[in-house]
Simulated scan of single mutants.
Amino acid sequence: MIDFRSDTVTKPCKTMLQTMVEAEVGDDVYGDDPTVNQLEQFAAQRHGFEASVFVSSGTQANLLAILAHCERGDEYLCGQSAHNYRYEAGGAAVLGSVQPQPVENEPDGSLDLQKLAAYIKPDDFHFARTKLLSLENTIGGKVLSLDYLAQARAFCDQHKLQLHLDGARVYNAAVALEVDIRAIAQHFDSMTICLSKGLGAPIGSLLLGSKALISKARRLRKMLGGGMRQAGILAAAGMYALENNVERLREDHDNARYLAERLNELPGFDTSAYPVQTNLVYVDVANQVDIHKVAKDLIEQGIQITPGYQGMRLVTHLGVSHADIDRLIQALKSR
């Protein structure tokens, strides 16, 4: 099955699987899993943070970050399109009594800092206390520039806010910008990294921050039922992903651009409103195309997509090759 739905569908390669089988393990809740400890120490050092914690998912990593930065009755600023606002079941509000204050994202995915300033609450007991700004990079496949990140850091320093990055696809951003990951990470008080998207691990994310923040996050992880035991089997996959699967993200970006070009050959498909920067391709599908029927027909040919009309998303990843894209286009042409 060729799967264009998301880069979350990636599967471990044989070498990664063998690394998992051979992983030395222990009880991570006791701090005894050497492979988890190795991953957390490596990740903290690699990205320029004091500490990190390995967790089961990006949603949990973002939730731990927000709850570690904020107390009950506090507020965090974020984009209307932010994953931790729109797609994480309202966890910060439900589980932490932390109020999100969303602001409309700009066309390039950034947040207007002047607009953000107007949403910071006065120091008055009538209001929630604004404590945190959360950004996302990439967001909708768009890359936030290094200049913008520096401006956001200065903004947070000026307004005494903490700055968090939802970095689910932050390595896609670093590869697109052709910079070391630290050039992005240096601006943030905390950052998440999803290991199970383009990096190709089967499970897991990292939260990085100060020792104090990560210590608090560990307690919260336990409270949420996120304490894992012999988790080194999963951490080994994460280590392999960070050490071996970063540079190959360029191939995903190249394939995404190729996919967009080929889609534009088809009547009723148009990607021109969505310049491709990384591995996410968005396409407008004309109403006369029954895209839901097309999707069902594609499944019978071994191809999966998520059907839609305005801004339908297709994703390239290590499970999608140049030839797979040609196969999709041919299937769409012959519908």
Rank of each mutant, 00 (worst) to 15 (best):
residue 155 F to P: 08
residue 163 L to I: 03
residue 185 A to R: 13
residue 157 D to H: 12
residue 146 L to S: 00
residue 115 K to P: 00
residue 116 L to H: 10
residue 92 A to M: 08
residue 76 Y to P: 01
residue 207 L to G: 01
residue 120 I to C: 13
residue 135 L to I: 06
residue 110 S to T: 15
residue 165 L to W: 04
residue 172 N to D: 14
residue 199 L to N: 05
residue 146 L to V: 05
residue 154 A to P: 01
residue 113 L to G: 04
residue 198 G to H: 01
residue 186 Q to Y: 03
residue 163 L to D: 05
residue 95 L to Q: 11
residue 92 A to G: 09
residue 176 A to W: 02
residue 146 L to E: 02
residue 180 D to P: 02
residue 202 P to F: 00
residue 201 A to R: 09
residue 155 F to L: 03
residue 72 R to F: 02
residue 162 Q to P: 07
residue 144 L to Q: 12
residue 136 E to I: 09
residue 108 D to L: 09
residue 85 Y to N: 08
residue 174 A to L: 13
residue 200 G to Q: 03
residue 89 A to D: 13
residue 127 F to E: 10
residue 144 L to S: 00
residue 141 G to R: 01
residue 96 G to R: 08
residue 94 V to S: 05
residue 144 L to D: 11
residue 98 V to D: 07
residue 134 S to Y: 00
residue 100 P to D: 06
residue 175 V to W: 01
residue 207 L to R: 03
residue 177 L to G: 12
residue 79 G to L: 11
residue 202 P to S: 14
residue 85 Y to M: 13
residue 99 Q to R: 14
residue 164 H to T: 02
residue 174 A to V: 11
residue 136 E to P: 02
residue 186 Q to N: 05
residue 145 S to A: 09
residue 112 D to A: 08
residue 185 A to D: 13
residue 148 Y to E: 09
residue 192 T to C: 15
residue 171 Y to N: 06
residue 74 D to S: 03
residue 85 Y to W: 11
residue 142 K to D: 00
residue 192 T to V: 15
residue 78 C to Q: 06
residue 177 L to E: 12
residue 151 Q to E: 15
residue 128 A to F: 10
residue 146 L to W: 01
residue 166 D to T: 12
residue 115 K to Q: 07
residue 117 A to Y: 06
residue 186 Q to C: 03
residue 190 S to L: 13
residue 76 Y to D: 10
residue 120 I to S: 07
residue 144 L to M: 05
residue 94 V to C: 04
residue 86 R to C: 08
residue 208 L to H: 08
residue 166 D to L: 03
residue 108 D to A: 03
residue 107 P to E: 03
residue 127 F to Q: 12
residue 145 S to W: 12
residue 98 V to K: 09
residue 114 Q to P: 05
residue 76 Y to G: 11
residue 198 G to C: 01
residue 167 G to K: 06
residue 145 S to M: 07
residue 179 V to Y: 02
residue 84 N to F: 07
residue 200 G to W: 04
residue 168 A to D: 08
residue 160 K to R: 11
residue 150 A to Q: 14
residue 139 I to A: 02
residue 196 S to C: 04
residue 161 L to R: 11
residue 182 R to S: 05
residue 196 S to H: 00
residue 117 A to H: 05
residue 173 A to P: 06
residue 161 L to K: 14
residue 137 N to F: 01
residue 80 Q to E: 14
residue 122 P to G: 07
residue 191 M to N: 04
residue 199 L to I: 06
residue 90 G to M: 10
residue 122 P to F: 09
residue 107 P to W: 02
residue 96 G to T: 07
residue 142 K to F: 03
residue 146 L to C: 00
residue 132 L to V: 04
residue 81 S to F: 14
residue 143 V to K: 00
residue 187 H to C: 10
residue 72 R to I: 12
residue 95 L to T: 14
residue 181 I to G: 05
residue 99 Q to H: 15
residue 152 A to C: 09
residue 76 Y to I: 11
residue 71 E to P: 04
residue 109 G to D: 14
residue 203 I to A: 04
residue 133 L to C: 08
residue 132 L to W: 09
residue 136 E to C: 11
residue 122 P to C: 06
residue 160 K to C: 10
residue 91 G to P: 06
residue 208 L to N: 08
residue 98 V to R: 14
residue 194 C to D: 09
residue 81 S to R: 15
residue 203 I to E: 10
residue 105 N to W: 08
residue 168 A to S: 08
residue 77 L to A: 05
residue 154 A to Y: 02
residue 166 D to W: 02
residue 88 E to R: 03
residue 141 G to F: 00
residue 183 A to K: 14
residue 93 A to R: 15
residue 134 S to P: 00
residue 161 L to T: 02
residue 86 R to V: 10
residue 200 G to M: 01
residue 146 L to R: 00
